[in-house]
Write a protein that binds this DNA or RNA. Structure first.
Length: 556
DNA sequence: ACAGACCGCGCC
DNA sequence: AAAGGGCGCGGTCTGT
């Protein structure tokens, strides 16, 4: 069964039960204790909850101690369906869906609201429905329309699964923010002091950075702002050294006394600016880092985050991520997910055979690259990213000869992009159509050499995007299914355990120490479940190694 | 004062 | 001959 839910302020709201097909089976019921009503339904019927946006409803339920098993997130599903139809640029979200159905002016998407760990005094604004539509009725209508749309396309089965997996991902994201990533402030503070010096006021360079800035100035014989790349390039030019940019990898081969302090400065400044004391103040509270995840925030279906740079936690800081006393972190990482995804998508039997081992690149190297793992990896990444620089070209040729189906698959995707066609993931995530300016550049009637060259370049760029899209988006299909399977399994074997972090192809579970072995087992099983759900029976191996650690720094 | 471009670097 | 996918975020500079 389904229950459609509409929240009001202060835990009040309305509910209405529906059949699986979305037909109301009873009248709307108002309640002053929404969380209690939801909890009761969970106990008695385990319905699939139907609501406009998980992010608007579920955090409040979690705050009141209520977990739900399943939902259908109308906003996320709307976005997936619009994309499937090539309508990426139309406003997504529930309110827009209602407006489209009723022929009313479609409201623009509300812009992103940056959040922080600090509690806010104001309730987040809820979408106003156009034409004063009744939210419960409108949700039922939109659900029916989404079912019709999804059923009428070639990827019907895939989209149904994708809708469920994306909705489950939204639940998992809200739970990760709610429970938070265990973050030991004193460990982080000690690391900052050790590498930067004592804490300074915001904007005031810590001692170690000030010293390096002085060394840089001394090496150049005049003050040079190390935070200003053009100034650095000019400073080297005055010394008779031409550098194309001030990037670290460019400077590291330059022979000049300013290089060493500059490289050290860049590294430390990055830590200070991105994950220094201000970051701690803003993002860590009560021993938890609570980033705001944006499920499906990337066109490929990958997650993004808003604020806190949660998907860029530097390796050096992972030592601050520690399990509570008596608890463990179970770290799980899908190794080499994308080449394995390519093996399934392309049906390349040879590549499937190579994926049988835990380290795909080693096997690939033994198979085709004289045992040279580096080369095997470059070849594979070049195939998936469209890289051709340096030695990539010849290596890719070797790969193509040995694995024609796999390389042919990504090359077909690249060709589609170069021609402005869309490509899709396994479950039906769909690449956006190229922009107006892309069409102008590639369809130009101007046959000057410059215009033609630009057209070719723009076309190739889009081909690299679609080449990567098929792999990256199908990997996102798999991870969405994984999250759904894992959160359900965790609740069964160890209800106290929670997903607390997710980053493209790795997850962290915070669990009581005595549950760690069981959690590791469930992670592995969830990986198998995701593989079968998304890809069906396949010889391709998707190893998802799980290990219990005390700190994230010890993972892998 | 503010928005937006560009650079550079962190993560996958 | 050269050509590499996806992000978020903070810095400086430029234009208004």
């Amino acid at each position: 069964m389904l229950v459609v839910l509409e929240p009001h302020a202060e835990n009040a709201g309305r509910l209405r039960p529906l059949s699986d097909a979305g037909v109301p089976t009873g009248p709307p019921v108002a309640t002053a204790d929404l969380a209690g009503a939801v909890a009761e339904y969970e106990r008695s019927a385990r319905p699939r909850w139907l609501w406009a946006a998980t992010g608007e409803v579920y955090p409040e339920l979690l705050a009141r101690g209520v977990r739900v098993e399943r939902c259908h997130d109308l906003g996320h599903v709307e976005a997936l369906l619009l994309a499937y139809q090539g309508r990426h640029r139309e406003p997504r979200g529930f309110a827009a869906a209602v407006a489209r159905l009723r022929g009313l002016p479609v409201p623009e998407d509300v812009g992103p609201r940056r959040k922080s760990a600090q509690p806010t005094l104001f309730e987040p604004e809820r979408e106003r429905l156009p034409g004063d539509a009744d939210p419960l009725e409108a949700a039922v209508e939109v659900y029916a329309a989404q079912r019709r749309t999804a059923a009428g396309v070639a990827h019907a089965g895939g989209l149904r699964l994708l809708a469920a997996a994306e909705s489950a991902s939204a639940l998992a994201a809200a739970e990760m923010t709610h429970f938070g990533l265990p973050w030991r402030e004193e460990v982080h503070l000690a690391l900052l002091e050790e590498t930067l010096g004592p804490r300074t006021a915001p904007g005031v360079r810590p001692r170690r950075l000030a010293v390096l800035a002085d060394e840089i100035a001394a090496a150049f014989g005049r003050p040079v702002n190390p935070d200003h790349p053009p100034g650095i390039v000019r400073a080297f030019a005055r010394e008779g050294i031409d550098v194309p940019s001030a990037r670290a990898w460019v400077l590291k081969d330059v022979d000049h006394p300013a290089v060493a302090p500059l490289l050290a400065y860049k590294e430390l400044a990055r830590l200070w600016v991105a994950h220094g004391w201000s970051w701690l103040d803003e993002w860590v509270a009560d021993g938890r880092f609570r980033p705001d995840y944006v499920v499906g925030g990337v066109v490929s279906g990958r997650w993004a985050t808003r604020g806190g740079a949660a998907l860029q936690i530097p390796r050096a800081l992972r030592t601050a991520v520690r399990a509570d006393p008596g608890w463990k972190l179970v770290a799980a990482d899908a190794s080499q997910l994308e080449p394995r995804v390519l093996a399934v998508l392309s049906g390349d039997h040879r590549l499937a055979a190579v994926s049988g081992e835990d380290d795909l690149y080693t096997t690939l190297a033994a198979d085709a690259f004289d045992g040279k793992r580096d080369r095997a990896k470059i070849a594979m990444l070049s195939a998936m990213y469209g890289g051709t620089s340096g030695e990539a070209g010849p290596l890719l040729a070797v790969l193509r000869k040995r694995f024609p189906d796999a390389v042919g698959y990504v090359e077909a995707a690249a060709l589609a992009g170069e021609q402005g066609r869309m490509v899709r993931s396994r479950l039906g995530r769909t690449s956006p159509p190229p922009s107006e300016s892309w069409h102008e550049a590639t369809g130009s009637t101007d046959d000057s050499e410059d215009a033609e060259r630009r057209g070719r370049r723009v076309s190739r760029e889009w081909g690299r995007f679609t080449r990567n899209f098929v792999v990256q988006a199908s990997a996102a299909d798999w991870t969405a299914a994984l999250l759904g399977a894992l959160r359900r399994r965790l609740h069964l074997v160890s209800p106290e355990s929670h997903l607390v972090f997710f980053q493209h192809d790795e997850v962290l579970v915070h669990c009581p120490a005595e549950a760690a072995a069981a959690v590791c087992h469930e992670v592995t099983e969830a990986g198998h479940e995701a593989t079968t759900l998304v890809f069906g029976p396949t010889p391709v191996h998707f190893p998802l190694k799980a290990e219990a650690v005390d700190t994230y720094a010890d993972a892998k």
